[in-house]
Design a protein around this nucleic acid. Structure first.
Length: 925
RNA sequence: GCCCGAAUGGUGGAAUCGGUAGACACGCAGGACUUAAAAUCCUGUGGCCAUUGCGGCUGUGUGGGUUCAAGUCCCACUUCGGGUACCA
């Protein structure tokens, strides 16, 4: 019989399991409002539970936020750290269409898988607060918020959302006189006119003001997906999900008046602790531009055409006008003679998709036949039509200044239109002069002014001559809010006499109905058109569209504060305690979508007095993307023989992707390779030093590249703590980097080393002795470093600090409780399982999560003797140890006196000596 | 095109305020233990030269500049990554 020797090894599998169930059983991570403790709210962007499960890139941000949460908890904060699922979405629905499986079922299954994977990593989430956007008790509040938006308009004078009744009252008493409200279309009527209108007419007018409104708009229609998409869901003319072509189409759709909040969304950025690049991205997306709206008379017509320009100073350089093909002016202005040409051009433009329009760099356009009058000099200028002018921005019409705008220049050259430079000394013979600097010329009353001065003067001129007005334009558009899909929140809207009405709040949630198929109906209605009894109790039909993906993710952070509340999205008490997210971690891909919509949604609720903070996410960290690191084997042409990378140049080879899970440190597991694919069962190998070494490349992590690494496999092989530490050790959190398992052994070795500090043979062996100065120093150096690093999200350097400390303690053979206990507490946020196990081995009976963070004590860090680097003319020559408190003049004298210095001085007198206390001495000869 | 970010050994990366570049880890080389392997431990490891001593030169994408001192600041450029785009 074999003698079983009991060696207390670091048995991570057992330790992980033991403590994960302990935490669950003792509800270690559940939190409640506690007025006696300061709150801290740490949030991860909740995932969409896809069928593929989590790969090793997903937990990166979750681990970082978990470290931060645990750190804050140890510091005495009451930490809210929740998790949930963004459960509505296209992939589940596409899968449902293919398989007939209800999306709720696949979503449920995927969530279970995600949960299982997350549980294995040991996160400190309060699962009691989990939210799922597809659950009625959650989407009730998404629907509720939509009703509020329907019932509010944006008042410019108070700069906030106001109940629509206030607007109605204003119309009843004064008409549009004195009303300053954000609207789709400027309106003008008297109180009498308003009061004489029918209910339907009045409701149509109000729709023009509502924050959630339905309007006939130009939308991004994606035929392949059978739905419209928001601007942030489209890139370069194709859908972000799936890459299907997107075209422009006129449709009646629900929209959110996000643009009303453009200025506040821009201003709010300055108060946020976000990265500069992310703020810049949002700033560009909001796209504020200051300029002027100017009216141009049309020759032989009474009406005036309005354009928007940021360069009113170049008015004397205007030689023609351009209309967007979709502009309503096109039909008004086209002359009989030009009619056929214009029609042909419009047809050609309509046929092109957005993508083709962008891709096509050729200049195209057509003359309308009409002329406008330049208000500055009274000259007649032709009006053209071209698709380089966008209908949706400004007024859909521009004044063209070919000398100073590259696009106008290209157009003028192509159609042989005059080019008049209005900046002194610029050369426009080959290209336009776009710079916003120089002195004006050929410009009447603007001559001699700088561009900046001229812009101001031109604006003044426009105002006094009543040619137009100073105007700020934003690029930010309203968000299209309807989707012609099944798997989303139903709108709490019904139709009576063709007019949309919100449901009474008592009818919420309006449950998503069952349908027999997830495809549109035969009449082209959305899938909800198939639902039976899809109408109100009174028989009024319900809205057939559903809400988009960003609906449910816009206010989820609020719901976590009070997830079970049945009477409010969040109670006043919970909101006033948790307030907003202190730290938000997630990917940059949400910069122009979710992070704009959430801020908008929050500001709206803030206007309603429902939330007490104007901005939802105080600090935001973007974790980098984890890319895949693929491995290759090299097959010799026309054979089943594979050659190791450094020998491959002697043969003609084809690289073949090989599963990274059967490669370790770029060395192929040959037996596993033969089993991996039957084709390779009889494969032969040309090895170098008895090994097959694979090639590698950084690529996107995907199944087809065989480079997907699953966190479960890493946890199974090394334990959760190794995975956590290694993901952090990989590099700076915010940097994108390839996943590569090559260094993981080093991190695992560190944990074993740490474990060994506590054990002697098979016994836990911790001494109660007082530590030496060196031991104290090793610890306190760590305490200081780790705190600094966590606060700066530099987790990779804290892992190396732990390694240094454990290496030092191992050398010192330190097993003293006074050192090891604080070490465990410091390590706990990073490696919760091993620290909990050892904590209990030290005879503690409560969780280490409730320990108190140990602060570094400077007294252990002070040095009596410091090493100076002695340099001559900036070159370090040797080191010299001197007392730390030696005054600089004394340091200088001592250094110059030494024999070594004399050698380097070679008898010369130093010109200058610089002493940097405790660091360096530089002697200039 | 415009905006933002990055570039450091064979590899991932460190250098927090302009003050000893390469911490920590991987890999590699040599050694100890072992019949052997794994595991573990020790030593070395930017490059070049000298290694019979100390050592010397050089080095953070390229070129220039500021400074006693530059990976770090300034100017110009190259390459890569990200965002965005007929936005007037």
């Amino acid at each position: 019989m074999q003698l079983i020797q009991v060696i207390m090894e670091y048995n991570f599998r057992e330790i992980d399991r033991k403590w994960q169930s302990f935490w669950k059983e003792h509800r270690i991570y559940n939190v409640d409002i506690d007025p006696h403790r300061p709150k801290y709210y740490v949030l991860d962007m909740f995932p969409y539970p896809s069928g593929a499960g989590l790969h090793v890139g997903h937990p990166l941000g979750y681990i970082a936020s978990d470290i931060y949460s645990r750190f804050k908890r140890l510091q005495g904060f009451n930490v809210l750290h929740p998790m949930g699922y963004d459960a509505y979405g296209l992939p589940a629905e596409q899968y449902a269409i293919q398989t007939g499986q209800h999306p709720a079922i696949t979503t449920e299954k995927n969530i279970a898988r995600y949960r299982e994977q997350m549980d294995k990593i040991g996160f400190s989430y309060d699962w009691n607060r989990e939210v799922r956007t597809c659950e009625p008790n959650y989407y009730k509040w998404t629907q509720w918020a939509f009703i509020q938006m329907f019932n509010y308009y944006y008042d410019l004078r108070t700069q906030k959302a106001q109940p629509i009744e206030i607007l109605v009252h204003a119309f009843e008493t004064n008409g549009t006189q004195g009303v300053e409200a954000v609207c789709s279309e400027e309106m003008s009527f008297t109180a009498k006119e308003w009061n004489n209108k029918s209910v339907a007419e009045q409701r149509d007018i109000l729709m023009n003001y509502r924050i959630a409104y339905k309007a006939d708009t130009m939308v991004n229609w994606c035929p392949a997906l059978g739905t419209v998409l928001a601007n942030d869901e489209v890139s370069e003319g194709v859908s972000i999900r799936g890459g299907h072509p997107v075209e422009q189409r006129h449709m009646s759709q629900w929209s959110l008046r996000v643009s009303a909040y453009a200025q506040r969304l821009l201003d709010g950025l300055t108060t946020l602790a976000w990265s500069d690049s992310l703020k810049e991205t949002q700033k560009n997306w909001i796209g504020r531009s200051e300029g002027a709206e100017m009216q141009f008379s049309i020759a032989n017509m009474d009406e005036k055409m309005t354009i928007f320009t940021t360069r009113p100073d170049t008015i004397f350089g205007v030689t023609f006008m351009v209309l967007a093909p979709e502009s309503e002016w096109v039909t008004k202005l086209t002359t009989a003679k030009q009619q056929s040409d214009v029609t042909a051009y419009l047809d050609a433009t309509k046929k092109k998709t957005e993508r083709e329009r962008i891709a096509d760099k050729r200049v195209s356009g057509v003359f309308s036949g009409a002329f406008a009058v330049n208000p500055a000099n009274g000259e007649n200028i032709p009006i053209w039509i071209s698709d380089y002018v966008l209908a949706g921005y400004g007024t859909g019409a521009i004044m063209a200044v070919p000398a100073h705008d590259a696009r106008d220049y290209a157009f003028a050259k192509n159609f042989n239109l005059p080019i008049i430079p209005v900046i002194e000394g610029c050369d426009v013979s080959n290209e336009s002069f776009d710079a916003k600097e120089g002195i004006l010329t050929n410009s009447g009353f603007l001559n001699g002014l700088t561009v900046k001065e001229a812009i101001a003067k031109a604006k003044e001129y426009i105002k006094t001559k009543q040619l137009g007005r100073v105007k700020v334009n934003f690029r930010l558009r309203d968000a299209i809010f309807s989707r012609q899909r099944y798997w989303g929140e139903p709108f709490p809207i019904y139709y009576k006499d063709e007019q949309p009405y919100p449901l009474d709040e008592s009818k919420l949630p309006l449950m998503l109905p069952e349908v027999d198929s997830y495809l549109p109906t035969e009449h082209g209605e959305p899938p909800l058109g198939r639902a039976i009894n899809w109408h109100t109790e009174d028989g009024f039909p319900l809205e057939l569209n559903t809400m988009p993906g960003f609906a449910g993710s816009s206010a989820y952070y609020l719901r976590y504060m009070d997830p079970h509340n049945d009477t409010a999205l969040v109670s006043k008490e919970a909101d006033e305690y948790w307030r907003n997210v202190d730290l938000y971690i997630g990917g940059t891909e949400h910069a122009t979508g979710h992070l704009i919509y959430s801020r908008f949604w929050n500001k709206f609720l803030f206007d309603l007095g429902l939330v007490c903070e104007d901005e939802p996410f105080q600090k935001l960290i973007n974790q980098g993307m984890i890319q895949g690191r693929s491995n290759f084997v090299y097959r010799i042409k026309d054979s089943n023989t594979f050659v190791s990378i450094n020998l491959k140049d002697a043969y003609e080879t084809t690289p073949i992707h090989v599963d990274v899970n059967i490669v370790h440190n770029d060395i192929l597991d040959i037996e596993a390779f033969k089993k991996w694919n039957p084709e390779y069962k009889t494969a032969e190998f040309i090895l170098e030093e008895r090994k097959y070494i694979c090639g590698w490349a950084v690529e996107k992590m995907s199944k087809s590249m065989y480079n997907v690494v699953n966190p479960d496999d890493i946890v199974e092989k090394y334990g959760a703590d190794t995975l956590r530490l290694y993901e952090m050790f990989l590099g700076p959190l915010e940097q994108s980097k390839p996943w590569d398992t090559n260094g993981i052994d080093g991190v695992h070795r560190f944990l074993k080393k740490l474990w060994n500090l506590f054990w002697k043979e098979d016994q836990i062996a911790v001494s109660e002795e007082t530590p030496t100065l060196e031991e104290w120093k090793a610890l306190h150096k760590l305490l200081k470093k780790v705190k600094y690093d966590i606060e700066n999200f530099s987790f990779n350097t804290s892992v190396s600090a732990f390694m240094i400390c454990v290496n030092e303690l191992t050398t010192l053979k330190c097993n003293k409780r006074a050192i090891l206990e604080p070490l465990l507490i410091t390590l706990n946020p990073f490696a919760p399982h091993i620290s909990e196990e050892l904590w209990h081995q030290l005879e503690h009976h409560s969780s280490i999560c409730d320990a108190t963070w140990v602060e570094a004590d400077e007294k252990y860090l002070q040095e009596d003797i410091v090493t100076y680097a002695i340099s001559f003319n900036g070159k370090v020559r040797y080191q010299l140890s001197l007392p730390a408190d030696m005054p600089t003049d004394k340091v200088e004298a001592t250094v110059l006196d030494s024999d070594q210095a004399q050698k380097w001085l070679e008898g010369k007198t130093p010109k200058k000596v610089i002493v940097v206390p405790k660091k360096i001495v530089n002697i200039v000869i």
